[in-house]
Amino acid sequence: MGEYAIRVSGRLSDALLSAFPTLHQQPLPVQTLLWGDLPDQAALQGVLDSLDELGVEILEVNQLPDRSNEQAEHPA
């Protein structure tokens, strides 16, 4: 389906981050950015549902540009 970036409020603990082993994370001063490839709509909804169940406030969800198209257009 594509790569997504999910920005949440607060810095997530290691225990919370371990619930999302397939996602990369970047702690920011008062937020956390999670991103990674999600194979389908159900996977995205599963991540969002899990964050909600854990009481994490979701601030923003963005689909990232498809980098495989960029690589095809601009070969090294």
Rank of each mutant, 00 (worst) to 15 (best):
G2P: 14
E3W: 06
Y4E: 13
I6N: 03
I6G: 03
I6L: 12
I6M: 09
I6F: 07
V8Q: 00
S9K: 15
G10S: 05
G10W: 14
R11G: 12
L12M: 15
L12N: 12
S13M: 00
S13D: 00
S13C: 00
D14N: 01
D14W: 00
D14V: 00
A15C: 03
A15N: 13
L16D: 00
L16F: 02
L17T: 02
L17N: 01
L17M: 13
L17I: 01
S18H: 02
S18V: 00
F20Q: 06
F20T: 01
P21A: 13
P21V: 11
P21R: 10
T22S: 15
T22Y: 08
L23K: 11
H24D: 10
H24T: 02
H24N: 14
Q25T: 06
Q25K: 06
Q25V: 02
Q26R: 15
Q26I: 11
Q26Y: 08
Q26M: 13
P27H: 15
P27T: 04
P27S: 11
P27Q: 14
L28E: 14
L28I: 04
L28Q: 15
P29M: 03
P29W: 04
Q31N: 15
Q31T: 12
Q31K: 14
T32C: 05
T32N: 04
T32M: 03
L33F: 03
L33Y: 07
L33H: 05
L33W: 06
L34G: 01
L34S: 00
L34M: 13
W35Y: 15
W35P: 02
W35S: 11
G36H: 03
G36V: 01
G36K: 02
L38F: 09
L38V: 09
L38I: 10
L38N: 06
D40E: 14
D40K: 08
Q41D: 13
Q41F: 08
A42H: 07
A42R: 14
A43E: 10
A43T: 08
L44G: 09
L44A: 11
Q45T: 09
G46P: 08
G46R: 13
V47Y: 08
V47I: 15
V47Q: 07
D49K: 08
D49G: 02
S50P: 00
L51W: 06
L51R: 06
L51Q: 10
D52W: 08
D52S: 15
L54V: 03
L54R: 14
L54N: 12
L54D: 05
L54T: 02
G55F: 12
G55R: 08
V56S: 03
V56C: 05
V56L: 01
E57P: 02
I58K: 07
L59G: 07
L59V: 12
L59M: 12
E60V: 06
E60D: 14
E60T: 07
E60Y: 05
V61A: 06
Q63W: 04
Q63M: 12
Q63F: 04
L64C: 12
P65I: 08
P65L: 12
P65D: 11
D66W: 05
D66Y: 10
R67P: 00
S68H: 08
S68G: 03
N69F: 11
N69W: 12
E70R: 09
E70P: 01
Q71K: 09
Q71V: 08
A72D: 01
A72H: 03
A72N: 02
A72E: 04
E73S: 04
E73D: 05
E73P: 01
E73K: 08
E73Q: 10
H74S: 06
H74A: 06
A76K: 05
A76S: 09
